[in-house]
Computed example of a mutant assay.
Amino acid sequence: MDYSLAALKLLCVQLKSAVQTPSQNSFTLGGILFQRAWLQGILVSAPCSTDSGGNGQFLLDDGTGVIELILSGDFRSRRWEAGRSISFL
């Protein structure tokens, strides 16, 4: 991870428009190169959620769209519940 690159606060609709740059393991959006994004919204589905049927996906809705989050390590093992307002970086 290159922490000298920007960490952008994005909407889901913007993140979906980002373009991956294979040579640098990063993304670009509007000419800005980044590897990390800050998203904020409502968790509408989580693997352990009884409300969503526990479909195995982490889905975040920020009002502009829904995006699937891929969590790793410690974050994946936490208890997540649909309906919670969350913020990720």
Rank of each mutant, 00 (worst) to 15 (best):
I42E: 10
F34N: 05
T50E: 07
D62A: 09
T50G: 00
L89R: 14
R79W: 05
G83S: 08
D51H: 10
S85V: 01
L11P: 00
V44A: 00
Q57L: 13
P22Y: 03
G41L: 03
T28D: 05
F34M: 09
G53F: 08
Q14K: 13
P47M: 09
S23M: 11
P47D: 09
G56F: 00
Q57N: 09
D2S: 11
F27V: 02
N55A: 04
Q57P: 00
G83F: 03
R78C: 12
G41D: 10
Q20R: 14
S4L: 06
W38N: 09
I86A: 13
I70C: 10
Q24W: 00
T64I: 02
V19D: 08
A46K: 00
Q14D: 15
L10A: 03
I67S: 04
R79I: 13
C12H: 01
L71N: 06
I42K: 09
V19W: 03
G30E: 09
W80E: 10
F58A: 02
R36D: 13
S77W: 04
A7C: 15
S17C: 14
L10S: 01
S26Y: 05
L8F: 03
R84L: 11
L8M: 11
F58Q: 02
P22I: 05
G31S: 14
L8Q: 03
W38H: 11
L15S: 10
T28G: 02
T21K: 13
P22K: 11
A46S: 10
S26F: 09
T64C: 02
V66M: 08
S4F: 01
L10D: 00
N55Q: 12
R36A: 12
K9C: 05
V19C: 07
G83E: 04
N55E: 11
R76T: 04
E81S: 12
L59S: 04
T28V: 13
T50L: 07
S45D: 13
S52L: 04
L59F: 05
G54W: 06
S17V: 07
